[in-house]
Write a protein that binds this DNA or RNA. Structure first.
Length: 208
DNA sequence: CGCTCGATATTCT
DNA sequence: GAATATCGAGCGA
């Protein structure tokens, strides 16, 4: 317990890593030494050459090159001109690349800092989405490629034995291809899971 | 509550 | 020029 997740944790298929990350604790050490923490409550697995919804589907590029490298590194990309999203690279298998998108966390430590970053005091809106949590934890492109398997770095994940967790799965959200694959994992009933539209919520309900 | 739209980097057509 | 692993403001019901 309380151990930092190492390379062996991430050196597995992205679907396995994504499911196993639910309930683990994301730790962010700021440049001034302040520590921020949040329990992971929602993730999505992405593949490589066989996953049309993945950034890595069409091969390597300047943006996605980290996804083609060693497991246990942060793949952070800038999207829609405004937000960053955090992934952790996993084992690519035969598909050249893979990663797990961290979609939502439950704030645990450093909530005042997160409120300042997000310019809101609404607790369930601080980190309930991939763009939101990067803003709250001050995660941007400068951390792209960071080794996430050591507590001496600015970003890592710890097993604090958070429980009980009822992990459910659904199709991935925010994509338009390969929507049949149930590669989204979330802690059921947790208010910090990202909000999806009413319409999609009904679809997910029907499919579960 | 739900829908539309704007902000605008990166990649693809 | 269009689409995208996003979010929130503005508006109508």
């Amino acid at each position: 317990l309380n151990e930092v997740l190492g390379i062996s944790f991430y050196d597995r298929k992205s679907m396995i890593v994504a499911e196993d990350l639910i309930g683990k604790t994301l730790v962010r050490i700021l440049p001034d030494g302040q520590e921020l923490e949040g329990n992971i409550v929602e993730t999505e697995a992405y593949g490589g050459s066989r996953d049309p919804a993945s950034h890595a589907f069409r091969g390597i590029s300047k943006r996605n090159e980290v996804m083609f490298g060693r497991p246990g590194r942060a793949y952070i990309y800038f999207t829609y001109g405004f937000y960053y999203c955090l992934n952790i690279v996993s084992n690519p298998g035969k598909t050249k690349a893979s990663a797990v998108l961290i979609r939502a966390i439950e704030p645990v430590k450093g909530i005042e800092f997160m409120e300042k970053q997000r310019k809101t005091n609404f607790l369930t809106s601080l980190t309930s989405g991939p763009g939101k949590l990067c803003q709250a934890l001050s995660i941007d492109g400068k951390l792209n490629g960071t080794d996430v398997t050591t507590s001496s770095g600015p970003l890592y994940v710890v097993n604090k034995g958070v429980s009980p967790i009822f992990v459910r799965r659904s199709r991935r959200v925010g994509i338009t291809t390969a929507i049949d694959r149930k590669w989204r994992f979330f802690s059921d009933g947790n208010p910090f899971v990202s909000k999806v539209s009413f319409k999609l919520r009904r679809v997910l309900q029907r499919e579960s």
